[in-house]
């Protein structure tokens, strides 16, 4: 619990490897070709057959490629949810821009959408020509059950890293109950909880007790 982030690193007893400051994170930018960016997002998109695109993005961007740290990825994901636009397309722009500027953003969007657009069009052609959804229903049902599992495991894995203090756990529970159980709209949830979480996350000058 003591490694719970955000307090300044100079509070001596912290393990340094747990405290990667955002500036170090941004300075570390592996060289990635545009083709590799596009290929990576294509891989994310195709793997998400059955759903779970956020979980797949984390799996590839954070775990496999290590292009972003856990906290960097999670905060980017929430900003991409708040901004207008499809969350995953937004995330591709965000990651693409980080890795390769404007061309990187375009490469990531192309990678994410090109093959899925072709697949969706083939399914749409079949649907409008023969008035039937291609017989994928039963396969999808199984794949969707696993995609839900991947999303849940993402919550568990990231939760183990980010929910180290009572305040963090309370914020987590509050938004889960509001958004998941009560189905309050995202905007209302954030209007209520984002100010609290920013207040909690704001860097403190002095060394205060946690």
């Amino acid at each position: 619990m003591s490694e719970e982030g955000g307090q300044k690193p100079e509070t001596g007893n912290r393990k340094p490897e747990k405290e990667v400051s955002p500036s170090q994170v941004s300075a570390f930018r592996p060289q990635v070709s545009l083709f590799e960016l596009a290929l990576t997002f294509n891989h994310i998109a195709l793997a998400s057959f059955g759903g779970g695109l956020s979980a797949w993005s984390r799996e590839v961007v954070v775990v496999e490629r290590k292009w972003m740290t856990e906290e960097e990825f999670l905060s980017a994901l929430t900003m991409c949810r708040i901004l207008p636009g499809a969350n995953q397309v937004n995330l591709a722009v965000f990651v693409g821009n980080k890795m390769g500027g404007v061309p990187g953003a375009f490469a990531a969007i192309f990678g994410l959408t090109l093959v899925p657009v072709l697949i969706v069009l083939a399914m749409g052609y079949g649907y409008f020509a023969y008035n039937d959804v291609p017989a994928l229903g039963s396969i999808l049902k199984g794949a969707a059950a696993a995609a839900v599992a991947l999303t849940l495991s993402m919550a568990i894995k990231t939760g183990q890293k980010c929910l180290g203090s009572p305040v963090a756990i309370m914020l987590f529970l509050a938004i889960f109950v509001l958004n998941g159980l009560l189905r309050t709209s995202l905007l209302h949830c954030l209007a209520l909880l984002a100010p609290l979480s920013l207040l909690w996350g704001w860097p403190r000058k002095g060394k205060e007790a946690e």
Partner: peptide
Amino acid sequence: HAIEKGFAPLTVGLVLASGYVM
């Protein structure tokens, strides 16, 4: 700094919520 630290628990909650809703 505040967003990276403060939004992380919210995102975990939203991810769990979307898994639940799915």
